[in-house]
């Protein structure tokens, strides 16, 4: 697939201002960087990628100056499209209904950064125990609690055993 075949439908479907940059990796493979002004456009991009038979590789999230930046790494036939969106109210529309490959990545940022992917079909925790509050990466927490959700009153094995007795 040629990069123009990806750029054109994306540009046609975006509703808000954006910045688009073409780049190459060190071996000449094409990479796109798309910065969205409005997070609402992320579903428009996802729809185009889904129509082109693409997938969501992963999503990177980081926080700077109280703003959460989300970089969606999408792929269409080996061409990488990095789409940056930002949120100030800890919500963003889920792209999982359009690209099921985004399922885990959205669930991960929900529990790590407390950003709610609105319309995500799955509400269960991905890695962290339900006893741990969302947005755990913004606070200090013992590693054993982070991994197993254990505390002095509730250990993992007790719950596993209890569940299996029912």
């Amino acid at each position: 697939m040629k990069i123009k075949e990806i750029i054109q439908p994306i540009q046609e479907n975006l509703q808000y201002p954006y910045k688009l940059k073409e780049d190459n990796d060190n071996y000449g493979n094409k990479i796109l960087w798309l910065k969205l002004d409005n997070k609402k456009d992320i579903t428009n991009v996802a729809r185009v990628i889904a129509n082109l038979g693409g997938r969501c590789v992963t999503i990177t999230v980081y926080k700077a100056n109280d703003i959460h930046f989300l970089i969606y790494h999408l792929d269409v036939d080996g061409i990488l499209i990095n789409v940056e969106a930002h949120t100030t109210d800890n919500t963003i529309d889920s792209i999982t209904p359009l690209l099921p490959s985004a399922n885990w990545a959205e669930r991960e940022f929900r529990e790590m950064y407390a950003i709610e992917p609105i319309g995500h079909p799955c509400n269960e925790r991905l890695f962290l125990d339900e006893s741990i509050t969302k947005g755990v990466l913004n606070q200090y927490i013992p590693l054993s609690k982070m991994m197993l959700g254990i505390n002095e009153n509730d250990i993992l094995w007790e719950r596993v055993e209890k569940e299996n007795k029912i």
């Binding site: 493979n29 038979g53 997938r55 590789v57 080996g78 099921p100 490959s101």
Partner: peptide, 26 residues
């Protein structure tokens, strides 16, 4: 295709998204 699997799991289902072929490096 829908779940975005890669590697031998994808290739066993007839999908070639091997990075060495699709976006070769080194």
């Amino acid at each position: 295709q829908k779940l975005g699997v890669t590697g031998p799991v994808a290739r066993g289902s007839g999908i070639n998204n091997d990075v060495r072929v699709k976006a070769p490096y080194a």
